[in-house]
Write a protein that binds this DNA or RNA. Structure first.
Lengths: 229, 229
DNA sequence: TTACTTAGTGTAAAAAATACACACTATATT
DNA sequence: AATATAGTGTGTATTTTTTACACTAAGTAA
C-alpha cells in the first residue's frame, strides 16, 4: 500500500559485514563504539541511508567512508527490523556484505567520528557484538557460504594474480572444511574460467607455484551468472 | 551507525508476492489500485510496517488482512529502495513471498479499502504493474526457483495429501521446464521425506493415483534445513 | 467389451564426485 | 656440493548421481 505517505518517524540504516582475507585468515571489520548505547562494544560499521541515495549507492558510500575503498563487490542480503533491536527507537537496518582483499598496498583510511577505532578481527575469535549484530554477522556468513558454491565471489578476496592453493584456502575458510587438493584443482580448472599465467609466485622459500587470473569475460560468456564450485 | 536517531521522513512498507497454485496454474495475487498514483493499474498487495511490529509479523498481518489466511510460509527476500521508485516520496519497501494452496474451501476475504478488487492472475499472462513491482515480482520468482531446489517449499503449494504427479507439476511450473517422470519419482522418493498413504485420489475419471503426505518430522531429522530436489 | 486416460515401473550408459600417494622443484642450510 | 625442507603438481580406480528412454497396469466411461 503505497499511495498514502504518512509522516512517520522511522530510521533506516545500513550495516556492513566486510569480509577481508589477508592470505591467512578470514576477518571482518569491526568498530569500537564511542557512544551510548553499547559504548565500548564492538559493532558492525554502518550508517543512515541518505534521502537521495539508492540502497546500493548508500552501501558503497558507507564502505568508502570507512575504508577508502571503491569498486568493491557488495550485496544486500537481509533486513533486520525487530522493533526492539535498538534501545532508543525503531531502526530498521539493511545488511550488506562485501568481500575485500587485505594487506598489500592500501591502508584503511581513519574511521569517521563515531568510533574509537576500527579493526580487522579474525572470524574465529570475535568479541561480543552490540545490538543484534551477531545475528547480522551469522546470517552474512551463511550467505557467503552458500554463494561461494555457485558464484565466483572467492576471487574478490584474492589479489588479481593468485595460486590455486590460495584459492583453495579461501574456499576452505569460507566453507569451514578441508578440501582435497587434486579434486579441487581438477574441478576448478575444468570450468575454464581461470587463465594460467606465465608467471610464478615470488618470494617464497620453496618451489614457486603458477599464478592464475580469473577470466571475467570467459565466465560471463559461459555461465551468464551461475556456476557450481 | 545507530547511536543517533535523527527525525527523518521515511516510509517503510512491505510488498508481497503471493504465489498460489490451484492444481493447474501458478498465479499471483494482484490488486487493482483505486487511487493515484497508478490509479487503475495492477499492483502487488502491500502495506506500511506498523511501529511495534517485527517485519515478519507485519508481513503476516498484511497477508491476513488481504486473504484471511494465517500460518502461511512467508519469507523476506529483498529490499527495494530506489529514491525515485515512488513518485510521491521516498518509500523503501521490503519484499516477501508466500506460497499458498488455492481453490477448495476458503475464499479470499474481501480486500481492504485501497483497492477496487483483487485477483489471482496466472504468471504466464501478467499485466503491466505499478511502481517497480515487475522488478519485485521477477526477483521473487527467481528466488523461489532457486529455493525449490534445496528446500521443501513445493509442499506449501499443495494440499496436505497430494499425488506425485501433482508434485511434479508444481516443480515444472516453478522451474519452467519439463521433468522426466521416472527420474523425478525416483529422486523425490529416495529422500525419504514423503509418506505414502493408503488412500487414493478420488473423483477422477481414470486410474486413481496414490496419495502422499510430506513428513515434516522425518525431514527435520534427516536434513535440518537443507536438501537437493 | 472396448476405448481412453493416467499411474506406475527398471535398466543401461554417461557424467560427476570421491578417495587416495608420491615424485618434483626451488630455496635454505651446512 | 650435498642435504634437508616445504609446498607444487599430477592420475586412476571406485562409487554415486544423473540422464535417457517405453511399456504395462488400473480404473472410468461409453
Amino acid at each position: 500500500m503505497e499511495q498514502i505517505l504518512p509522516h512517520l518517524d522511522s530510521v533506516f540504516s545500513i550495516d556492513c559485514v566486510l569480509f577481508g582475507f589477508d592470505g591467512k585468515e578470514l576477518k571482518i571489520l569491526l568498530i569500537e563504539r564511542n557512544e551510548e548505547p553499547f559504548k565500548d562494544w564492538w559493532a558492525l560499521p554502518g550508517n543512515i541511508v541518505g534521502p537521495d541515495e539508492s540502497l546500493d549507492q548508500s552501501a558503497s558510500r558507507i564502505l568508502y567512508e570507512l575504508t577508502g575503498l571503491r569498486g568493491i563487490y557488495m550485496e544486500q542480503y537481509y533486513a533486520f527490523g525487530d522493533p526492539h533491536r535498538h534501545p532508543q527507537g525503531r531502526v530498521i537496518t539493511l545488511a550488506y556484505y562485501a568481500l575485500i582483499r587485505l594487506g598489500g598496498d592500501k591502508e584503511l583510511r581513519p574511521i569517521s567520528t563515531y568510533a574509537k577505532r576500527a579493526n580487522w578481527l579474525p572470524i574465529t575469535d570475535l568479541p561480543k557484538l552490540a545490538f543484534d549484530h551477531q545475528k547480522i554477522y551469522d546470517k552474512g556468513l551463511e550467505k557467503i557460504k552458500r554463494r561461494i558454491k555457485h558464484q565466483p565471489i572467492a576471487f574478490e578476496l584474492l589479489p588479481e594474480k593468485f595460486t590455486l592453493t590460495q584459492l583453495q584456502h579461501v574456499y576452505e575458510l569460507v566453507l569451514g572444511k578441508k578440501l582435497d587438493k587434486r579434486n579441487f584443482r581438477k574441478k576448478i580448472v575444468s570450468f575454464g574460467v581461470l587463465k594460467e599465467l606465465d608467471e610464478k609466485q615470488k618470494g617464497v622459500s620453496y618451489r614457486a607455484a603458477t599464478l592464475y587470473r580469473f577470466d571475467k569475460r570467459k565466465y560471463a560468456k559461459l555461465f551468464g551468472k551461475e556456476i557450481s564450485f
